[in-house]
Amino acid sequence: MKILHLGDLHIGKKVNGYSMIEDQKYVFEQMYKLIEDKGIETVLIAGDIYDRSIPSEEATELLDQLLSNLINKYKVKVIAISGNHDSSTRLDFSSKILEKQGLYIVGEYKKLVNKVSIDEVDFYLMPYVDPTIIRRKYKDILEERDLKISTHDDTMKFLTDEIKKDMNTNKVNIALYHGFVVGGGDSAEEIEKEDSVKILSVGGKEAVKEDYFLDFDYTALGHLHGCRRVKSEKVRYSGSPIKYSFSEVNQDKKFLIIDISKDKLSIDDTNMIKQKYEMVELTGTLDEVMAADIPKDAYLKVILTEQTLDAMNKLRVKYSQVMELQINIATEKAIKRKYTSQEINKKNPVILFKELAESVGVILEENEGKVLEKVIDGLIGGRS
């Protein structure tokens, strides 16, 4: 079976106020061509289908268009789970009716094992779920087995153990899961996570061991936005198809194709996704940034190393899509100046103000300094 593994579509997402709807349409057109060219039979979507639990009208229309094209026009089966950005209840709506059309979506855990069988392949669907929901919903089973669930790792061990009880090892078994999976010996803190990826649980309790998935022939993961394997070749993130933050600027976005049978697993991660607009980060003076050889319509983050009045408007004379602007001026001297509260009270306020101005790259000229002295003298005189 030839499978396209997708995840983290985030349909309807806005990045720094810019809608990604047109970018998503642009990527989906590439996907349709790939499905035809490569003979894809099944598409997996490993969560975060929408960017918000209550999607916009535009986002809903785009998902409807996407699924209609995949199922009706390109005749592929679609198997999807909800992610932490989705509303599990909304995605579950009409799911039983849609199965007859070849669309299988699981948003909520209405049963412990959610299996979809297509030909000789069994798909096990494990959408994102908070441990408290499983703990409450299956309280009697947990008490009967004397099991305690407090973390995502506890939850996934419980759910995968349940699956493995009746898993047919003579068939191809594929898992779909949305969460943060860590390989043996890896540190969860050291794994690259993008700025646009929400933390699932505070205190480092969001990580799930890869070990629970090693009995599956392939595991399609969603949540992290880079296309990567965990530790095993058969446990993988497809990544998001679009760059959704500047922390993803150096990531190559790819369509991940899996060709699988019981005695074969072939993974093709060479299908690059062209972005509608490049995402670029520039650092330097205003002149240096303005002279950069980049597309004028790139999604741009600028870090200026000098104080510049009306910088954003000056940048937009050349660049049409400046998403972020930061001023980052070296303040080594200012950092070294450390005064106690008593020392500050004794310090000449004019000097303090000048030091503050210098720390953000503004040097007061002589006449400005004299005006400042008069203003401060007037304030101090009025107070006394």
Rank of each mutant, 00 (worst) to 15 (best):
H5R: 10
H10C: 00
G12P: 03
V15D: 10
D23V: 02
Y26D: 05
V27D: 00
L34M: 01
E36L: 07
E36W: 09
D37H: 02
E41F: 09
T42M: 07
L44R: 03
D51N: 06
R52I: 01
I54M: 13
P55V: 03
P55E: 01
E58K: 15
T60Y: 12
E61D: 15
E61A: 13
Q65A: 05
S68T: 15
N72M: 15
N72D: 13
V76M: 08
K77L: 05
V78R: 06
I81P: 10
S82G: 13
H85I: 09
T89I: 14
F93G: 08
V106T: 14
Y109V: 14
Y109M: 11
K111C: 04
K115T: 11
D119C: 12
D119F: 12
Y124D: 03
Y124K: 00
L125H: 13
Y128E: 02
D130Q: 13
I134N: 08
R136F: 11
K137E: 10
K139A: 07
I141W: 08
E143L: 07
K148H: 08
T151L: 04
D153V: 11
D154T: 05
L159V: 04
T160D: 06
D161C: 03
I163K: 00
I163G: 05
N168I: 01
K171P: 04
N173I: 00
L176C: 02
G179P: 06
F180I: 00
V181K: 07
V182I: 14
G183M: 05
G183H: 11
D186Y: 14
E190L: 13
I191T: 09
D195Y: 14
S196N: 12
V197S: 14
K198L: 08
S201F: 08
V202G: 12
G204T: 10
E210N: 08
E210S: 08
Y212A: 09
Y218T: 01
T219I: 00
L224E: 04
H225C: 00
G226N: 11
R228C: 03
R229M: 09
V230K: 05
K231E: 15
S232H: 09
E233R: 15
R236L: 01
R236H: 00
Y237L: 05
G239L: 05
G239W: 02
S240H: 09
K243S: 01
S245Q: 07
K253S: 09
K253Y: 09
S261W: 07
K262T: 01
K262M: 01
D263L: 06
L265E: 07
S266K: 13
S266H: 10
K274E: 08
Q275T: 07
M279A: 09
E281I: 01
G284A: 12
T285Q: 04
L286Y: 12
D293S: 14
P295R: 04
L300Q: 11
K301P: 14
V302K: 00
I303M: 10
T305E: 06
Q307W: 12
L309P: 07
N313F: 04
L315Q: 01
Y319T: 05
M323Q: 11
M323C: 14
T331D: 14
E332L: 11
K333D: 14
A334Y: 15
A334T: 12
R337Q: 10
K338R: 13
T340P: 00
S341W: 10
E343C: 02
E343P: 07
P349S: 08
L352Y: 07
E355C: 03
L356M: 15
G361R: 03
N367K: 15
E373D: 15
K374V: 13
I376Q: 06
I376H: 05
L379K: 04
I380Y: 05
